[in-house]
Amino acid sequence: MDIKQRTQIYKNLGSLVRKCIFGILSVATLPNHIAFIMDGNRRYSKQHNLVDGEGHKFGYSSLMSMLRYCYELGVKYVTVYAFSIENFKRSPEEVQSLMDLMQEKIEGLIKEESIVNQYGVRVYFIGNLKLLTKPVRLAAERAMDATAKNSKAVLSICIAYTSTDEILHSVEESCEEKRVKVGVLNGKRHEKDVIDVSDIERHMYMAVAPDPDIIIRTSGETRLSNFLLWQSSNCLLYSPSVLWPEIGFRHLVRAVLDFQHKLHYLNKQKQA
Protein backbone atom coordinates (compact mmCIF):
# COMPACT_ATOMS: atom_id res chain seq x y z
CA MET A 1 0.00 0.00 0.00
CA ASP A 2 1.51 3.32 -1.05
CA ILE A 3 1.38 6.68 0.76
CA LYS A 4 -1.48 7.97 -1.39
CA GLN A 5 -3.67 4.97 -0.54
CA ARG A 6 -2.89 5.23 3.19
CA THR A 7 -3.67 8.96 3.11
CA GLN A 8 -7.05 8.27 1.51
CA ILE A 9 -7.84 5.60 4.11
CA TYR A 10 -7.02 8.00 6.96
CA LYS A 11 -9.11 10.68 5.27
CA ASN A 12 -12.11 8.35 4.94
CA LEU A 13 -11.70 7.18 8.53
CA GLY A 14 -11.58 10.78 9.77
CA SER A 15 -14.72 11.59 7.83
CA LEU A 16 -16.50 8.59 9.35
CA VAL A 17 -15.47 9.57 12.89
CA ARG A 18 -16.69 13.14 12.34
CA LYS A 19 -20.00 11.86 11.01
CA CYS A 20 -20.50 9.74 14.13
CA ILE A 21 -19.62 12.62 16.48
CA PHE A 22 -21.84 15.05 14.58
CA GLY A 23 -24.66 12.52 14.79
CA ILE A 24 -24.33 12.53 18.58
CA LEU A 25 -24.15 16.34 18.75
CA SER A 26 -27.25 16.69 16.57
CA VAL A 27 -29.38 14.97 19.23
CA ALA A 28 -29.36 18.36 21.01
CA THR A 29 -29.83 21.86 19.53
CA LEU A 30 -27.09 22.82 17.08
CA PRO A 31 -25.82 26.38 16.59
CA ASN A 32 -27.20 28.12 13.54
CA HIS A 33 -24.37 30.67 13.27
CA ILE A 34 -20.74 30.38 14.35
CA ALA A 35 -18.29 33.28 14.01
CA PHE A 36 -14.50 33.08 14.19
CA ILE A 37 -11.88 35.63 15.21
CA MET A 38 -8.76 34.18 13.58
CA ASP A 39 -6.16 35.35 16.08
CA GLY A 40 -2.52 34.25 16.18
CA ASN A 41 -1.26 33.92 12.61
CA ARG A 42 1.70 36.28 13.13
CA ARG A 43 2.62 34.73 16.47
CA TYR A 44 2.52 31.29 14.85
CA SER A 45 5.01 32.51 12.24
CA LYS A 46 7.35 33.82 14.94
CA GLN A 47 7.12 30.68 17.06
CA HIS A 48 7.96 28.46 14.10
CA ASN A 49 10.57 30.77 12.55
CA LEU A 50 8.55 31.19 9.37
CA VAL A 51 8.96 34.02 6.88
CA ASP A 52 6.43 36.84 7.01
CA GLY A 53 3.05 35.82 5.64
CA GLU A 54 3.54 32.06 6.04
CA GLY A 55 1.49 32.03 9.22
CA HIS A 56 -1.47 33.43 7.31
CA LYS A 57 -1.15 30.64 4.72
CA PHE A 58 -1.33 28.03 7.49
CA GLY A 59 -4.24 30.01 8.90
CA TYR A 60 -6.08 29.79 5.58
CA SER A 61 -5.70 26.00 5.67
CA SER A 62 -7.22 25.99 9.17
CA LEU A 63 -10.09 28.13 7.93
CA MET A 64 -10.90 25.67 5.15
CA SER A 65 -10.95 22.83 7.70
CA MET A 66 -13.23 24.77 10.06
CA LEU A 67 -15.62 25.62 7.24
CA ARG A 68 -15.78 21.97 6.18
CA TYR A 69 -16.49 20.85 9.76
CA CYS A 70 -19.18 23.51 10.23
CA TYR A 71 -20.99 22.66 7.01
CA GLU A 72 -20.74 18.91 7.70
CA LEU A 73 -22.31 19.57 11.11
CA GLY A 74 -25.15 21.51 9.50
CA VAL A 75 -24.24 25.03 10.64
CA LYS A 76 -25.86 27.28 8.04
CA TYR A 77 -24.08 30.57 8.81
CA VAL A 78 -20.35 31.02 9.34
CA THR A 79 -18.69 34.42 9.74
CA VAL A 80 -14.94 35.05 9.86
CA TYR A 81 -13.02 38.17 10.90
CA ALA A 82 -10.44 38.29 8.12
CA PHE A 83 -9.08 41.84 8.18
CA SER A 84 -9.86 44.74 10.50
CA ILE A 85 -9.79 48.38 9.46
CA GLU A 86 -7.19 48.73 12.22
CA ASN A 87 -4.93 46.31 10.32
CA PHE A 88 -4.33 49.00 7.69
CA LYS A 89 -2.08 50.66 10.30
CA ARG A 90 0.49 47.88 9.88
CA SER A 91 3.51 48.41 7.67
CA PRO A 92 2.71 49.03 3.97
CA GLU A 93 4.71 45.93 3.04
CA GLU A 94 2.69 43.68 5.36
CA VAL A 95 -0.63 45.18 4.27
CA GLN A 96 0.23 44.68 0.59
CA SER A 97 1.35 41.12 1.27
CA LEU A 98 -1.96 40.37 2.99
CA MET A 99 -3.92 42.01 0.17
CA ASP A 100 -2.09 39.83 -2.38
CA LEU A 101 -2.78 36.71 -0.33
CA MET A 102 -6.45 37.64 0.06
CA GLN A 103 -6.83 38.20 -3.67
CA GLU A 104 -5.31 34.80 -4.37
CA LYS A 105 -7.55 33.01 -1.87
CA ILE A 106 -10.69 34.89 -2.92
CA GLU A 107 -10.09 33.86 -6.53
CA GLY A 108 -9.82 30.28 -5.29
CA LEU A 109 -13.31 30.44 -3.79
CA ILE A 110 -14.98 30.60 -7.18
CA LYS A 111 -13.24 27.54 -8.63
CA GLU A 112 -15.59 24.68 -9.39
CA GLU A 113 -13.94 22.35 -6.84
CA SER A 114 -13.81 24.97 -4.06
CA ILE A 115 -15.41 24.28 -0.69
CA VAL A 116 -18.13 26.90 -1.25
CA ASN A 117 -19.30 25.11 -4.37
CA GLN A 118 -19.02 21.67 -2.76
CA TYR A 119 -21.41 22.73 -0.01
CA GLY A 120 -23.54 25.25 -1.92
CA VAL A 121 -22.31 28.24 0.08
CA ARG A 122 -23.18 31.82 -0.74
CA VAL A 123 -20.33 34.22 0.01
CA TYR A 124 -20.68 37.77 1.30
CA PHE A 125 -17.82 40.18 1.89
CA ILE A 126 -18.74 42.36 4.84
CA GLY A 127 -17.23 45.75 5.62
CA ASN A 128 -16.09 49.03 4.14
CA LEU A 129 -15.00 47.47 0.85
CA LYS A 130 -13.95 50.76 -0.72
CA LEU A 131 -10.90 50.68 1.59
CA LEU A 132 -9.58 47.58 -0.17
CA THR A 133 -7.16 47.65 -3.06
CA LYS A 134 -8.95 47.55 -6.39
CA PRO A 135 -7.83 44.00 -7.33
CA VAL A 136 -9.08 42.63 -3.99
CA ARG A 137 -12.37 44.54 -4.20
CA LEU A 138 -13.01 43.30 -7.74
CA ALA A 139 -12.14 39.73 -6.73
CA ALA A 140 -14.60 39.99 -3.82
CA GLU A 141 -17.33 41.26 -6.14
CA ARG A 142 -16.69 38.39 -8.56
CA ALA A 143 -16.90 35.84 -5.75
CA MET A 144 -20.19 37.29 -4.49
CA ASP A 145 -21.65 37.25 -7.99
CA ALA A 146 -20.40 33.72 -8.71
CA THR A 147 -21.97 32.29 -5.54
CA ALA A 148 -25.17 34.35 -5.57
CA LYS A 149 -27.32 31.33 -6.53
CA ASN A 150 -25.91 29.07 -3.79
CA SER A 151 -28.48 28.66 -1.03
CA LYS A 152 -27.51 25.81 1.30
CA ALA A 153 -25.24 27.86 3.57
CA VAL A 154 -23.75 31.35 3.98
CA LEU A 155 -20.16 32.45 4.53
CA SER A 156 -19.67 36.08 5.60
CA ILE A 157 -16.08 37.30 5.36
CA CYS A 158 -15.52 40.48 7.38
CA ILE A 159 -12.80 42.37 5.56
CA ALA A 160 -11.94 46.06 6.09
CA TYR A 161 -14.40 45.75 8.97
CA THR A 162 -14.91 47.04 12.48
CA SER A 163 -18.15 46.99 14.41
CA THR A 164 -18.01 50.71 15.12
CA ASP A 165 -17.67 51.42 11.39
CA GLU A 166 -20.62 49.09 10.73
CA ILE A 167 -22.80 50.90 13.28
CA LEU A 168 -21.81 54.32 11.94
CA HIS A 169 -22.59 53.19 8.39
CA SER A 170 -25.98 51.88 9.50
CA VAL A 171 -26.90 55.10 11.32
CA GLU A 172 -25.91 57.17 8.27
CA GLU A 173 -27.97 54.94 5.96
CA SER A 174 -30.96 55.08 8.29
CA CYS A 175 -30.78 58.87 8.53
CA GLU A 176 -30.58 59.22 4.77
CA GLU A 177 -33.54 56.89 4.30
CA LYS A 178 -35.67 58.88 6.76
CA ARG A 179 -34.53 62.19 5.25
CA VAL A 180 -35.75 61.09 1.83
CA LYS A 181 -39.09 59.91 3.25
CA VAL A 182 -39.59 63.17 5.12
CA GLY A 183 -38.82 65.06 1.92
CA VAL A 184 -41.48 63.06 0.09
CA LEU A 185 -43.98 63.91 2.79
CA ASN A 186 -43.29 67.64 2.34
CA GLY A 187 -41.41 67.92 5.58
CA LYS A 188 -44.30 66.78 7.78
CA ARG A 189 -43.02 64.71 10.70
CA HIS A 190 -44.65 61.36 11.39
CA GLU A 191 -43.96 59.06 14.32
CA LYS A 192 -42.87 56.23 12.01
CA ASP A 193 -40.17 58.50 10.55
CA VAL A 194 -38.20 58.37 13.81
CA ILE A 195 -35.19 56.02 13.60
CA ASP A 196 -35.54 52.93 15.77
CA VAL A 197 -33.54 49.75 16.41
CA SER A 198 -35.12 47.88 13.52
CA ASP A 199 -33.91 50.58 11.10
CA ILE A 200 -30.35 50.30 12.43
CA GLU A 201 -30.35 46.51 12.22
CA ARG A 202 -31.79 46.52 8.70
CA HIS A 203 -28.90 48.65 7.43
CA MET A 204 -26.14 46.67 9.17
CA TYR A 205 -23.53 45.01 6.96
CA MET A 206 -24.34 41.82 8.87
CA ALA A 207 -28.06 41.96 8.10
CA VAL A 208 -27.37 39.00 5.77
CA ALA A 209 -27.13 36.66 8.78
CA PRO A 210 -28.82 36.16 12.16
CA ASP A 211 -26.91 37.01 15.34
CA PRO A 212 -24.17 34.47 16.12
CA ASP A 213 -24.76 31.67 18.60
CA ILE A 214 -21.03 31.16 19.21
CA ILE A 215 -17.97 33.35 18.70
CA ILE A 216 -14.70 31.42 18.74
CA ARG A 217 -11.53 33.44 19.28
CA THR A 218 -8.20 31.63 19.34
CA SER A 219 -5.05 32.53 21.34
CA GLY A 220 -6.94 32.46 24.63
CA GLU A 221 -8.05 36.07 24.21
CA THR A 222 -11.51 37.02 25.47
CA ARG A 223 -11.71 40.40 23.71
CA LEU A 224 -14.03 40.87 20.73
CA SER A 225 -11.67 43.44 19.18
CA ASN A 226 -14.45 45.50 17.61
CA PHE A 227 -16.11 42.46 16.00
CA LEU A 228 -19.91 42.00 15.93
CA LEU A 229 -20.40 44.16 19.01
CA TRP A 230 -24.03 44.89 18.12
CA GLN A 231 -24.84 41.25 17.36
CA SER A 232 -23.07 39.42 20.21
CA SER A 233 -25.02 40.36 23.34
CA ASN A 234 -26.46 36.85 23.80
CA CYS A 235 -23.90 34.49 22.32
CA LEU A 236 -21.31 32.14 23.76
CA LEU A 237 -17.67 33.24 23.60
CA TYR A 238 -15.23 30.32 23.43
CA SER A 239 -11.50 31.11 23.68
CA PRO A 240 -9.18 28.11 23.19
CA SER A 241 -5.53 28.85 23.97
CA VAL A 242 -4.25 27.58 20.60
CA LEU A 243 -3.20 29.97 17.86
CA TRP A 244 -5.46 30.10 14.82
CA PRO A 245 -3.29 27.85 12.57
CA GLU A 246 -3.42 25.22 15.36
CA ILE A 247 -7.21 25.10 15.75
CA GLY A 248 -8.70 21.68 15.14
CA PHE A 249 -11.83 19.58 15.06
CA ARG A 250 -11.80 19.03 18.84
CA HIS A 251 -12.07 22.77 19.48
CA LEU A 252 -15.21 23.05 17.38
CA VAL A 253 -16.76 20.07 19.18
CA ARG A 254 -15.92 21.62 22.56
CA ALA A 255 -17.51 24.93 21.53
CA VAL A 256 -20.71 23.21 20.40
CA LEU A 257 -20.90 21.16 23.62
CA ASP A 258 -20.46 24.34 25.69
CA PHE A 259 -23.20 26.02 23.66
CA GLN A 260 -25.59 23.11 24.20
CA HIS A 261 -24.80 23.01 27.92
CA LYS A 262 -25.49 26.75 28.34
CA LEU A 263 -28.34 27.07 25.85
CA HIS A 264 -31.05 27.29 28.53
CA TYR A 265 -29.23 30.18 30.21
CA LEU A 266 -28.61 31.95 26.87
CA ASN A 267 -32.29 31.65 25.95
CA LYS A 268 -33.32 33.06 29.34
CA GLN A 269 -31.03 36.04 28.78
CA LYS A 270 -32.63 36.72 25.39
CA GLN A 271 -36.07 36.75 26.97
CA ALA A 272 -35.06 38.98 29.89
Rank of each mutant, 00 (worst) to 15 (best):
S156H: 08
V253G: 04
Q5M: 08
E172A: 05
A148E: 12
G55L: 08
M144I: 13
A82I: 09
R217W: 00
R90V: 11
P212K: 00
I110T: 13
R42C: 03
A28G: 09
V27K: 09
E104F: 06
T29F: 09
I167Y: 00
P135N: 03
I34R: 00
N186M: 10
L50V: 08
K192R: 11
L131F: 01
E113R: 13
R68L: 14
K105L: 04
E112R: 15
F249P: 01
C175G: 05
V78R: 00
K178G: 07
A140V: 09
E246K: 05
K268F: 01
N186H: 13
G23R: 07
S61M: 15
E94H: 03
H33G: 07
A207H: 12
S62N: 12
Y161D: 05
A207G: 13
L98Y: 03
L50I: 11
G220E: 14
G220C: 07
E221H: 00
Q231H: 08
G14D: 13
I9A: 12
S198T: 14
K152M: 14
L132E: 01
K149L: 12
T218M: 07
E173L: 10
Y71A: 10
D211N: 13
A153S: 15
D52K: 04
S233D: 09
L30Y: 01
T222K: 06
I167Q: 01
P210Y: 03
V194P: 02
H56I: 05
S241Y: 09
K134V: 15
F227Y: 11
